[in-house]
Simulated scan of single mutants.
Amino acid sequence: MNRTTAHIAHDTLVEDAARVVEGVPGVAFLKPGPAARLRSAWSGPGAGRPPVSGVRLTPGPGGWQVDVQVVAARRERAVDVARAVRIAVQAHLAAPAADGPAARVTVTVTGLV
Score class of each variant (00 low, 15 high):
1 M>G: 15
2 N>A: 07
5 T>L: 01
5 T>A: 12
6 A>M: 07
7 H>F: 06
7 H>I: 12
8 I>D: 14
10 H>D: 14
10 H>N: 13
12 T>A: 15
13 L>M: 12
15 E>V: 13
15 E>I: 06
15 E>R: 15
16 D>I: 13
17 A>F: 03
17 A>E: 07
17 A>G: 12
17 A>H: 06
18 A>P: 07
19 R>H: 14
20 V>W: 05
21 V>G: 14
23 G>R: 14
24 V>C: 08
24 V>Y: 06
25 P>A: 14
27 V>S: 08
28 A>F: 06
29 F>G: 01
29 F>D: 08
29 F>I: 03
31 K>Q: 13
33 G>L: 00
33 G>F: 00
33 G>Y: 00
34 P>I: 10
34 P>R: 13
34 P>H: 12
35 A>Q: 05
36 A>P: 01
38 L>Q: 10
39 R>P: 02
42 W>H: 11
42 W>E: 02
42 W>A: 05
42 W>S: 06
43 S>M: 03
44 G>Q: 07
48 G>W: 01
48 G>A: 05
48 G>S: 08
49 R>W: 01
49 R>C: 00
50 P>I: 00
50 P>Y: 04
50 P>G: 10
54 G>L: 00
56 R>T: 15
56 R>G: 09
56 R>K: 07
56 R>H: 10
58 T>Y: 00
58 T>Q: 11
59 P>L: 02
60 G>V: 05
62 G>P: 05
62 G>S: 14
63 G>W: 02
64 W>P: 02
66 V>H: 07
66 V>R: 02
66 V>Q: 03
67 D>P: 01
69 Q>Y: 04
69 Q>D: 12
69 Q>F: 02
69 Q>V: 10
72 A>K: 04
73 A>S: 11
73 A>T: 12
74 R>P: 09
75 R>I: 03
77 R>N: 12
78 A>T: 15
78 A>D: 11
79 V>N: 08
81 V>R: 07
81 V>S: 08
82 A>H: 08
82 A>W: 02
82 A>L: 01
84 A>I: 06
85 V>H: 07
86 R>E: 12
86 R>K: 11
87 I>P: 03
87 I>W: 03
87 I>E: 14
88 A>R: 06
89 V>E: 06
89 V>L: 00
90 Q>Y: 02
91 A>L: 04
92 H>L: 01
92 H>T: 05
94 A>V: 04
94 A>E: 11
95 A>N: 10
95 A>D: 13
95 A>Q: 14
96 P>M: 01
97 A>W: 12
97 A>K: 10
99 D>N: 10
100 G>M: 06
101 P>N: 11
101 P>Y: 03
101 P>E: 09
104 R>V: 14
104 R>W: 06
107 V>D: 10
109 V>S: 09
110 T>Q: 13
110 T>S: 13
111 G>T: 12
112 L>E: 07
112 L>S: 11
113 V>R: 15
113 V>S: 14
